[in-house]
Amino acid sequence: MAGAPIAAKTALGPIKPAPPPHPVARTVLVTLAVSFLTIFILVPLVNVFVQAFAKGLDGYLAVFWPPQPAPEQVLSVVQQRKLAEAAVQAGRTWHAIGLTLSVAAIVVPLNICFGLAAAWATTKFNFRGRALLISLIDLPFSVSPVVAGLVFVLLLGRNGIFGDWATHLTWIDPFSLRWVGFEAGFPLAFERDYSGVIFTPLAIVLASVFVTFPFVARSLTPLMESQGTDEELAALSLGASGWRTFFKITVPNVKWALLYGVILCTARAFGEFGAVSVVSGHVDVNDTMPLRIEKLWNEYNNQAAFTVASVLALLAVFTLVAKAAIEWKAARDLPQNQGHSSQ
C-alpha cells in the first residue's frame, strides 16, 4: 500500500538475530546513516532552538509574555510605544496559537470520521473502482500545497464557481463565545462574525482538511486489510449489530494505527504553510502559527520567529514521543492480537 510510510508498525525491536554483520560494512553504513541524519535532521532541529534562545530565556518568554514595567517606573514615550508594540505582537502570537489549535480541533475529528468510513468501505468490501478510489484518497498527498490553496480560491473566490454565494455568507466564529455578564439577559455572546469564506478562518479549515485528508484513512487501510473480515463475521454471526461489531471489534483492533494516523494528521494540520498561506489573504486574524512565523521573520524579528517555530518543533517532538509510546504499546499488544485473530 502507498500508505506504508505511515503504517503503524515501525517500532524498533531489539536487533534481529541476523548473521553476524560484516564489520567494515557495519562501520561504513552506520557512519553514513548517522552523519546523514545529523546533517539533515539533528542540526536543523538544534538550530531552531539555538536561534529561539538567541536572547536568552527572558527573550524567549517575552515573545509570549511581554515584560511588564513596575508601576512606579517612569517610561519615556519611546519605551511606552515599544512596550505597547510588544503587547500587540504577543497578542497576535497567542491568537495564532489559538487559531492553529481551533483549526486542528475541527479538522482532525472530521478526518477521523472520514478515515474510518473510507477504510471500512475499501478494506471490508471488494467493488469495481476500488483501486481508483484508493488512489483518489491518496491524491492530496501529492497535490502541491499551492494548488490546494488555489482550488479553493477558484471555487469560493469572488469570481469563483460558488463565489457569489460564498462572498455573501456571514457566519459566527464559534470560538469567539465569551462571557459578557447578565446585564443584558443572556450571559454568553459571540464576539466575532465573518463575512465571506475565502480569506477567513473557514478557508483555513477547508485548506487544512484538504492537505490532511488521507492521513487517517491511509494509516488504517493496510492494517484493516491484513486483518481481514473473520472477526467481524464471527461477531455478526453471533448476533451483534453492525455498529456494535464496528465499535467493539474493528475499532479496538486498529486503535494504535488510528492514533498514529491522528497524530500525523494533527502534526500536518499544525504545520501546513503553502495552502493556508494562499487562502489566508495575509490578514493578521487568519494567521496560524506557520504564517505568524513568516510574518515575524518579515518584521525582522528573527528570534521571535524561531521562538514560535520552536513551539511547533516542541509539538513535533511531543507528537514523536507520543508516537514512540504508541508503537511500544502496539508492539506489546501485538502477540495478543495475533492470538485473537487466529481463532
Partner: peptide, 28 residues
Amino acid sequence: RLKTRLAGVALGLIALAGAAAAAEVRLL
C-alpha cells in the same frame, strides 16, 4: 448587541447572512 446575544442563545455555528453582528467595528 442583542442580535449577538440571540446568536449566542442559538449556539448556531454557521449562520446565514445577518444572523450575527460584531460588537465593534472592524476595518480591514
